[in-house]
Write a protein that binds this DNA or RNA. Sequence first.
DNA 1: TGCTTATTTGCAAGTCATGCGAACAATGCT
DNA 2: AGCATTGTTCGCATGACTTGCAAATAAGCA
Lengths: 164, 164
Amino acid sequence: MHSPAIVADKYREQGRRLTPQRKLLFALMHGNETHPTAEGLFAVASKRMPGISLRTVYQTLDELSAMGEIQLMHCDGEAVRFDSNVEEHHHAVCAETGELFDVYVDNINSLRAQLPAGFEVENVSIVFHGRLAEKKSKSPARPQTVRAKTTKRAPRRTSRGSNK
Amino acid sequence: MHSPAIVADKYREQGRRLTPQRKLLFALMHGNETHPTAEGLFAVASKRMPGISLRTVYQTLDELSAMGEIQLMHCDGEAVRFDSNVEEHHHAVCAETGELFDVYVDNINSLRAQLPAGFEVENVSIVFHGRLAEKKSKSPARPQTVRAKTTKRAPRRTSRGSNK
DNA sequence: TGCTTATTTGCAAGTCATGCGAACAATGCT
DNA sequence: AGCATTGTTCGCATGACTTGCAAATAAGCA
């Protein structure tokens, strides 16, 4: 996502108005790597601007995504998460914490996939499910070859609806 | 998913009862490659057994997934789809029709991914988004190299809630 | 056949999102 | 600055998809 100033310009160019709510949300999303849900962002925004409406958060996020400034990301059956990173990238989800990380994969084209006849791929999304080992060493992330346990994918549980 | 007879045995072994509803649903899911939603399966089941409850369909599907006979599959923000294929495989979604196809990828381990430090991958899920070209030739699906347009991923729309 | 206990059902309730319209406020103009 | 115009915000209603619950049923067994 572009800087708040640039996004503001794009807004103006489109005849949209710059409200305090929008300014706040631009700032909160810029450089945000937490992949927040609307509710999550709303919670943060509410601290700085009590009274802001969840409806406005949804609305602004929708605008930003329509403008290509952020991306929507559905993970399992959870609430939509918003990603300020619009570069081509993928994700890793920690089964422990639910945290979501950006992952860059540089050789997607080398995948050998048995696609249906006549299927034209427009884009591929890859999600690595796993968990963060108890952080012992803190070696920086570096390219590595995936080594997924070749176990059958464990039936993941859905989880929308009541959870009381 | 195993044959209805085998699934029935597993049910009996677990002290579960064999009801007509369950038998029907076993039969409908066995070999089913349409990745139906609960509502979809309910619609089909209702024809053969008017009066069957959507609640029962959900319940039976949950049991089957808990027993590892089927898998849950979340695609974008849509309703959960149930997959009778529990082998390790992936999916392709047609943006045109929403159809979902099984895809086998044989060299996932060769992906070069920049994962967070200390992230242990348990499994990877890959979804190919694209569309089925107007079926002109009908050459059988054969292994091929993915050739995704390297365009930025188009912001996909979420779509739950009203659609009236 | 009669019991015991698992199931089925229908409805209420819950979560995440969007539709809608009235009250508000950013902009542009004078 | 004052005012009109029209885009925005906000709260509530509505909607889609699921799950919780409890009463009514019906498997499986003696």
